[in-house]
């Protein structure tokens, strides 16, 4: 069964008589299965938050329709509000209430108690419980995220919307956070998460790559990576800038771009020989040239789709 069905939704901001406005979400369709961990991957301003706000009934789409657990996001917004959990990108709990008071508040608002659904949040809550009398505003970034997740979970939602939950969180906490998501998935909660980090994409069951309000591709991370059409090479040399210039001017080049300390490149010729390139690069005056054939990552796929 599908937990979320999105059909051709479009949203434009600030549409007036004189201006066309900003097209934030452009004819987007996708579905998310029950119990699936679905990722919306895209750069800032891609339209991820707008999609989230529409699915959580905070924003009405201009056109198109969507359902969450079979409830329409416009006509059945009441049911959706009581069954979904939403964690906005910006920390939005009461900074002047303590951890415990925040959690208690959100439990009451949803007509439940902490005790009733404690099993859902136990793993996360035990980590912040020692500080439960501390005000939320005084918590560290990672602890805030954990508290926000607890508050979004306390009413046992069927679907959990997490908008950039790991932005601004340290790498260790990020890793922990994704482990928590996996455990929640085991509880049969549908999770839809957005992130600008490509490395997190690989942790989702399926991902949608979005850019400029449009979905570029939807598939499992493995298949997105496998469908990368060409063999990818990582090239390294003593001078990055000149290496990139040299690669761009290489006759058989298809795509080349900087990727960390390497430059990633693909070539038109299927029988491409690394020796030829090495000779070319050395001829350009570059030293300590290294070329390796590598597996494409999500980021490589994303860059390919963008061009």
């Amino acid at each position: 069964m599908e937990a979320i069905v999105v059909k051709n939704i479009t949203k434009t901001y600030g549409k007036g008589k004189k201006t066309d406005g900003t097209l934030a979400v452009d004819n987007v369709s996708f579905t998310v299965g029950k119990g699936e961990l679905f990722g919306l991957i895209g750069p800032d301003g891609a339209g991820k938050t707008s999609i989230f706000r529409m699915l959580t009934t905070l924003l009405v789409p201009d056109s198109g329709s969507a359902t969450v657990d079979g409830h329409d996001i416009v006509s059945d917004f009441r049911q959706i509000r009581s069954t979904v959990g939403y964690m906005p990108g910006k920390f939005s709990l009461y900074q002047d209430l303590t951890i415990e008071e925040n959690l208690n508040f959100f439990a009451t608002v949803f007509g439940t108690t902490i005790e009733e659904n404690y099993h859902l949040i136990r793993d996360i809550y035990v980590q912040i419980e020692p500080f439960k009398t501390r005000r939320a505003g005084k918590l560290s970034g990672g602890m805030k995220q954990k508290l926000a997740l607890c508050c979004a979970l306390i009413h046992k939602p069927t679907t959990l919307f997490l908008d950039e939950p790991t932005t601004g969180v340290d790498p260790v906490s990020r890793k922990e956070f994704w482990e928590m998501l996996k455990r929640l998935k085991a509880q049969d909660i549908t999770i839809i998460v957005s992130t600008p980090y490509m490395d997190e994409a690989a942790l989702c069951d399926r991902i949608a790559l979005i850019q400029g309000g449009k979905i570029l591709s939807i598939d499992t991370p493995q298949r997105i990576v496998q469908s990368y059409p060409e063999q990818l090479f990582a090239v390294k040399a003593n001078e990055m800038y000149r290496l990139l210039q040299a690669l761009e001017n290489y006759p058989g080049i298809l795509r080349s771009y900087a990727f960390g300390e390497y430059a990633h490149a693909t070539f038109r010729d299927p029988d491409f020989k690394t020796d030829d390139l090495e000779a070319y690069l050395t001829g350009q005056g570059l030293t300590s040239v290294r070329i390796e054939a590598i597996e494409a990552t999500i980021e490589d796929s994303f860059i390919k789709l963008l061009n």
């Binding site: 959580t56 009934t57 905070l58 009581s82 608002v109």
Partner: peptide, 13 residues
Amino acid sequence: EIGTIEQINVTPI
């Protein structure tokens, strides 16, 4: 301003 209203708005209040 703080953004808490966002969280309140998705509740059934």
